[in-house]
Amino acid sequence: MRDPAVGVDDVTAMFDARLTEILAHRRERSRAFSAPYAQLWDALERMASGGKKVRPRLLLDAHAALGGTEERAAVDAACAIELLHVALVIHDDVIDRDLVRRGEMNITGRFASEALLRGAPRREAHSWGEASALLAGDLMLTLAHSVLAGLDVDEPRRRAALDIFDETVFESAAGEHQDVWLSLRLESATADDVLAMADRKTAAYSFQAPLMLAAVLAGAPPAVLEQLTVIARRIGVIYQLRDDVLGVFGDERETGKSTFGDLREGKETLLVSYARSDPAWATVAPYFGDEGMSASEGESLRRVIEESGAPLFVESLISERCAEVHRLIRDSQLPAPMVDQLVDLVSTCGARTS
């Protein structure tokens, strides 16, 4: 039960300590196996300790705003949602063939580089790096599930939390699968296709899952769960639309990623979907999705996207959707602290620069 003396800062400290404890336990267990396996857990611990912790903070803040009293269970659920995020990020990097994350080598890059330095052929070294990353993602995924399965709450809430996790992974995988399919460019992607993909890939695990877990642990009534589901999905799409704009026109020093990365990967976004209708697109279409795209070709592609009016279109859609979600939040029957939190969250997602 809740200790009245426990404040927001205390719960955040509890989360940091608990996540460190969970990972340290696995890291120590790995020492009984091979040295590379221990190195893999070292890498996972470093990776999980970084980042902005947006999702666990959302869960913990929402649990408090909804009057929740199960701080320890909420902290464990926050750890699980962060471990899920790490798992999906690792797998996403493998799918996108990225070697860098947050400005430094990711697990694929780190393990492949070490193998190269030790004399392994390039192809085998890269396969080793990818295999290490795939296994790392799997380990984080199962660890997240294990943490949720051990929540110290009554059985109905634990089962509800596990059902949320199962549906989140199922739907996020569908969104990622659709993202890869769209990048093949075997058929034209409509704006609706892109928005549906963003809804499944980003909204489900980044916003709906944290809010649903918080509400379930707080014992919120079904009406609150329904309202939060609708609001969370809309916030998730806003977040992804902003992410797509930053991926092409953001400040690399703030985002930590190249503004040519999405273009080289052939990532289907609303920017690209809109720009395709511009006659000038045909002049740069061969560059899109070309892993060997040069900087000058990338600049040309980015210029065509900008001059097509795509950024203005997406910005207007972000503004429109932010206003819509603000109305939904203010018209809801959610507690005042929850309303304030969500209003701030929408504004942050719509205007973020990193």
Score class of each variant (00 low, 15 high):
residue 333 Q to E: 15
residue 329 I to D: 03
residue 298 G to S: 05
residue 335 P to K: 06
residue 337 P to C: 06
residue 314 V to M: 06
residue 333 Q to C: 11
residue 326 H to Y: 09
residue 333 Q to H: 15
residue 313 F to G: 00
residue 352 R to Y: 07
residue 323 A to R: 15
residue 311 P to A: 05
residue 331 D to L: 08
residue 342 L to I: 09
residue 340 D to F: 08
residue 343 V to P: 02
residue 297 E to M: 10
residue 339 V to Q: 10
residue 318 I to K: 01
residue 331 D to A: 10
residue 335 P to M: 04
residue 351 A to G: 12
residue 338 M to Q: 09
residue 324 E to Y: 12
residue 347 S to H: 12
residue 323 A to F: 07
residue 345 L to H: 07
residue 332 S to M: 06
residue 315 E to L: 13
residue 351 A to N: 12
residue 311 P to H: 00
residue 308 S to H: 09
residue 311 P to R: 01
residue 326 H to Q: 12
residue 331 D to F: 00
residue 325 V to S: 02
residue 342 L to C: 06
residue 347 S to W: 09
residue 342 L to K: 01
residue 353 T to Q: 14
residue 344 D to N: 13
residue 346 V to N: 04
residue 351 A to S: 14
residue 334 L to V: 05
residue 316 S to C: 06
residue 343 V to R: 12
residue 350 G to P: 00
residue 330 R to L: 14
residue 308 S to R: 04
residue 340 D to I: 02
residue 313 F to K: 11
residue 311 P to S: 03
residue 338 M to V: 03
residue 320 E to A: 12
residue 299 E to R: 13
residue 339 V to I: 15
residue 305 I to G: 00
residue 329 I to R: 04
residue 336 A to G: 03
residue 318 I to P: 00
residue 311 P to F: 02
residue 313 F to C: 10
residue 319 S to G: 15
residue 345 L to A: 05
residue 320 E to R: 14
residue 323 A to Q: 14
residue 319 S to Q: 15
residue 302 R to G: 05
residue 342 L to N: 01
residue 301 L to Y: 07
residue 332 S to F: 04
residue 353 T to N: 09
residue 328 L to R: 11
residue 300 S to Q: 15
residue 315 E to S: 07
residue 343 V to A: 13
residue 334 L to W: 04
residue 344 D to G: 15
residue 301 L to F: 04
residue 350 G to Q: 01
residue 309 G to T: 03
residue 302 R to Y: 01
residue 322 C to M: 15
residue 343 V to H: 08
residue 327 R to E: 15
residue 302 R to N: 01
residue 322 C to G: 11
residue 311 P to I: 03
residue 340 D to Q: 12
residue 342 L to D: 05
residue 305 I to E: 04
residue 325 V to Y: 02
residue 319 S to Y: 09
residue 305 I to W: 01
residue 325 V to L: 05
residue 331 D to G: 00
residue 312 L to R: 15
residue 346 V to T: 06
residue 310 A to M: 08
residue 343 V to Q: 14
residue 309 G to M: 07
residue 317 L to D: 02
residue 318 I to Y: 03
residue 310 A to Y: 04
residue 298 G to T: 02
residue 316 S to M: 08
residue 316 S to V: 00
residue 353 T to F: 08
residue 330 R to I: 07
residue 345 L to I: 06
residue 340 D to R: 13
residue 299 E to P: 01
residue 323 A to K: 13
residue 313 F to V: 15
residue 322 C to V: 13
residue 306 E to Y: 13
residue 348 T to S: 12
residue 304 V to Y: 08
residue 333 Q to S: 15
residue 318 I to L: 10
residue 339 V to R: 10
residue 315 E to A: 10
residue 313 F to E: 13
residue 312 L to E: 15
residue 326 H to I: 00
residue 301 L to E: 02
residue 320 E to W: 06
residue 349 C to P: 00
residue 353 T to G: 06
residue 349 C to I: 02
residue 327 R to D: 13
residue 353 T to M: 12
residue 315 E to T: 09
residue 347 S to F: 09
